[in-house]
Design a binder for these strands. Structure first.
Lengths: 179, 179
DNA sequence: TATTGTTATACTCTATAACTATA
DNA sequence: TATAGTTATAGAGTATAACAATA
């Protein structure tokens, strides 16, 4: 801005970054008790003990490239939280399921994390939270639209997206994200 | 929450993460024109062509460990954007200054990035931005307080913090952050 | 031909720690 | 003793691409 004052837009940009750092830091502190990184936690939340999920689907949900998911699963399997099982219908694919230990750890992590989130976010009153959600939601929607004005270039992490898009699954993905 | 509905707190948590991803992605797209990573951009903004800055001070400002700063500077120096010069008063220290090319690149990046931020954030009206800033600011303050309830454990990235704290510079750092 | 998952390479950033040369 | 900066190692995460097995 002209007069040396910091613009609202810039301040908004700074605050979004700061909020993320603070929230992420709190998450890591909580998840450290289960020895989980945020990504591992996110992966565990996509799995169950019965059907499981294919690696590719997990990657699509979390916007991760295949190789990243492979190695996260390697760690989780090494630690005994998940198991790779053959997919019956598609012999190329594997379904990853939670072990008993995995179920336990995931449930503990989910419980502790949820409680932590509730308490941390309680800095704002319920009414303020509603306001914040409305504004942040509109901002997120606007930013998402702005990133692909000409129909391409959705996210910087595009490998998975491109695969999905070429597969006609983009709407499906956006739905999942919005859910 | 009990009935399967997602709590406001959880939704807030999710939105903060999503906002960050979207903003960061936009940043990377803009900065890619100058071949800068977000961290390199942040470092350049702390430097000038005259006095320069000591590596340690840059690290403290950006909450980075010494070794990270060393290697960012290596890259920037390799690309001809900065120069390491001896500090006259302290022969252990080096002052990093911008080269002519560095000044040009930094100014270009600052200009383009600022314009991009203004246009991206314009999704919200000025009035909405004021509301968002007020709420996000309160939330950030609350989160920051919550992270060190007993006086320690400020941020997960603590290496620099610990050094500063043992040095009695914590207040100074907090002031810098808040500015 | 396209997809699933693995492997390999390279790069950014983080964390830790050993090391030097100064202070 | 403590500090400034470098170097080394290890890890998480990203991006890209080659590859084998299968569809």
């Amino acid at each position: 801005m002209k007069n040396g004052a910091v613009s609202q837009a810039k301040e908004q940009h700074r605050l979004i970054h700061e909020l993320y750092v603070l929230v992420d830091d709190g998450d890591r502190q909580v998840l450290a008790e289960q020895q989980l990184s945020p990504l591992e936690f996110a992966v565990l939340q996509q799995l169950d003990a019965d059907n499981g999920q294919r690696l590719t689907d997990v990657g699509a949900l979390l916007l991760c490239v295949k190789s990243t998911i492979t190695r996260v699963m390697d760690r989780l399997e090494r630690d005994g939280l998940v198991l790779r099982t053959q997919d019956r219908d598609d012999r190329r694919a594997q379904r990853v399921v939670l072990t008993a230990k995995g179920v336990y750890i995931r449930n503990e992590a989910v419980r502790l994390h949820a409680a932590s989130v509730e308490s941390r976010m309680a800095v704002l009153t319920p009414a303020e939270q509603r306001q914040f959600l409305a504004l942040a939601g509109r901002l997120a929607t606007g930013l998402r639209d702005g990133l692909h004005p000409d129909g391409n270039g959705y996210l910087h992490n595009e490998a998975t997206l491109l695969e999905l898009r070429s597969n006609g699954k983009e709407e499906e993905l956006l739905l999942r994200q919005a859910s």
